[in-house]
């Protein structure tokens, strides 16, 4: 989506932070759904992942990041034999969401780290801008 106004350090950081937020929300949703079961393979929850793409602003030479929607992973749900379960199908099977908890935790940690990096970079840039502004 082309933007009318040129990209600045601030809009760049804002976009990067939004993208990281989408990524973190996706990972948190996956964690929340870990261990949830369904009565058929099609109904079972499948983990979602945020997809990032670069957004280059030719006028200023800055490249920001955009989250291009969410992608459902193709992992097959785990089939578990549990005839006592209320959601079990005719054969006594339930389908468990294929969420890898440690992978999701790592995803959240990495996302938080990159978010922090962006904030730090903006702080430095902002401080320098202020110094330049205040010089007489």
């Amino acid at each position: 989506m082309p933007e009318a106004r040129p990209m600045t350090m601030f809009s760049l950081t804002q976009k990067a932070m939004s993208a990281q937020m989408v990524r973190m929300n996706a990972a948190t949703s996956n964690l929340a759904n870990a261990g949830s079961v369904a009565s058929s393979e099609a109904e079972a929850y499948r983990p979602i992942r945020a997809v990032f793409t670069t957004e280059l602003d030719r006028a200023s030479g800055l490249a920001s990041v955009r989250s291009d929607g969410l992608m459902r992973s193709e992992t097959a749900p785990t089939k578990r034999y549990d005839p006592g379960h209320p959601l079990a199908d005719a054969d006594g099977h339930v389908w468990e969401a294929p969420v890898d908890e440690s992978a999701e935790m790592v995803e959240i940690m990495e996302s938080a780290r990159q978010y922090q990096n962006m904030v730090q970079a903006l702080q430095t840039a902002k401080q320098l801008m202020l110094e330049t502004l205040r010089s007489k």
Partner: peptide
């Protein structure tokens, strides 16, 4: 100042595939 923008772009795209 311009280089700062380029480096910030790199940091922003740390998780973008193919960047």
């Amino acid at each position: 100042s311009q280089r700062m923008g380029v480096l910030a772009s790199n940091i922003a795209n740390a998780a973008t595939p193919g960047y």
